[in-house]
Amino acid sequence: MTRKRRRLYFVGLGLLGLFSATALMLTAVEDNIVFFFSPTELKARTVAPEQRMRVGGLVEEGSVNKSGGTVRFTVTDTVESLTIQYNGILPDLFREGQGIVAEGRMGRDGVFLANDVLAKHDETYMPPEVADALKKSGNWHPEGATAQAAEAKPATTSN
């Protein structure tokens, strides 16, 4: 009986130690785990001119400017915003109001030069008719807020 009890304490304490150690370690290396920085976070950091990094945010409405193969648009986290220049194929989900992540480096003129643009999808899933109904009824809040809007209006979402 006592041996089982001892093993129980040993496993319990071992797991406690392991989980705390991992938590501490992850906190210490947080900068390497985050996949991208928001424009606000980027402003707070000192960035070497040729340093490769990723920035993420929402594509600002009306900011997309295509000329030839080059696209210029602004991403925002609603506080700060950043202009991005990109030369290449945009993912299917890329559109105004959409979350995106751009990989590249900071140009000298403050424009972010992207080598790659990825679309970020949110956790909201709904049929097109429901999205239209929400837009019509004025309950449309793109990016994240749509989830709550869809729930607040069960009459329009259940079909």
Binding site: T124, Y125, P127, V130, T146, A147, A150, N159
Partner: peptide, 13 residues
Amino acid sequence: IFGLKGFSVNAAM
């Protein structure tokens, strides 16, 4: 998709 506020997925899905 499953959080404190329930599911953020439409009923049909």
